[in-house]
């Protein structure tokens, strides 16, 4: 029997994924709290451990790992950009160890080392974002925001915005397919032509959005939605009431919070997380 799937922001997730046993607010806070780790920690060993931990979470949560493959080009581009930025524009200090000389450009070990530190740090941060997008649905974000007492109108707008991305992608593909049907191969065009063609996409996309705004507004008004600024008025939060915070949620939140506080305190009061402790800095 095929597994029942739920649609997430980046794909599909089995209904029995353990991630669904967590309250959407916990999952939303996961993004906010765990994203802070690579911001604070530069030590590459810890960021590699973080990346491995994230890959394990992908596995445990039954996320199809092919989703990461979609970001292959983003990782490759980032690698080249960082490598080029830090070799050609990395600066030079007489103490640096020059590895290769390419004309006036000196490729130094110190610059490459720093590029590696930054790249590993970013991989961890990007994996956190991919995990979040792969495991959250629009509904989860709205419920998470509502649980955090964000005014309904803001939470609702966030959900509507996420939905409108899907609608815009459908519109975008419809226009693109129409162009293809007229034998236009965008990939084969030079960049300047691509730019011109993009103009043909963006005008109908915006025009459709304006037309849709009428439909959405009419539908909202017809269902008795009153825009009262940030006040929610007499509105019942039925959907939110269907979710309950469990001990697991409190445990996960406490764990993430304690870990965050721990690395903040350690990085402020000790030099345990200093880059000098990295193997890279002992080479």
């Amino acid at each position: 029997m095929p597994t029942k799937m739920r649609r997430s922001l980046l794909g599909y997730l089995p209904v029995d994924s353990p991630i669904f046993s967590l309250h959407p607010m916990t999952r939303l806070l996961f993004l906010l709290i765990v994203s802070a780790y690579p911001m604070i920690v530069r030590l590459p060993e810890l960021n590699v451990a973080g990346s491995i931990f994230m890959l394990a979470l992908f596995k445990v949560s039954k996320v199809d790992l092919r989703v990461i493959k979609n970001y292959k080009m983003a990782f490759v581009n980032l690698f080249f950009v960082i490598a080029i930025a830090y070799t050609f524009f990395g600066g030079y200090n007489p103490d640096y160890r020059v590895l290769i000389k390419l004309g006036p450009v000196k490729v130094c070990w110190e610059n490459l080392r720093w590029a590696t530190v930054v790249y590993i740090q970013l991989i961890f941060a990007i994996l956190i974002m991919i995990f979040f997008l792969s495991t959250m649905r629009e509904r989860d974000i709205v419920v998470g925001l509502r649980a955090l007492r964000v005014p309904f109108v803001l939470a609702y707008m966030a959900g509507l915005a996420l939905r409108s991305i899907g609608l815009s992608i459908i519109d975008f593909n419809t226009i693109r397919e129409a162009e293809k049907a007229r034998a236009l191969d965008l990939q084969a065009l030079p960049f300047s032509e691509k730019v011109k063609k993009f103009g043909m996409y963006i005008v109908p996309l915006v025009a459709l959005a304006i037309r849709r705004s009428d439909e959405v507004s009419n539908a909202l008004d017809s269902r008795g939605f009153r825009f009262t600024g940030l006040r929610s008025g007499r509105r019942t939060d039925y959907i939110l009431s269907k979710y309950r915070m469990t001990r697991l949620d409190y445990a996960v939140l406490a764990g993430m919070g304690v870990f965050l506080a721990g690395i903040v305190l350690i990085s402020v009061y000790t030099d345990w997380l200093a880059l000098e402790n990295s193997l890279l800095y002992r080479i």
Binding site: M157, A161, S164, I165, S168, L205, A209, D214, V216, F227
Partner: peptide, 15 residues
């Protein structure tokens, strides 16, 4: 301000 503005803002985010 009304629902039309909420809608246009959300849709503009999408585009």
């Amino acid at each position: 301000p009304g629902t039309i503005h909420i809608a246009i803002m959300a849709l503009l985010i999408g585009v």
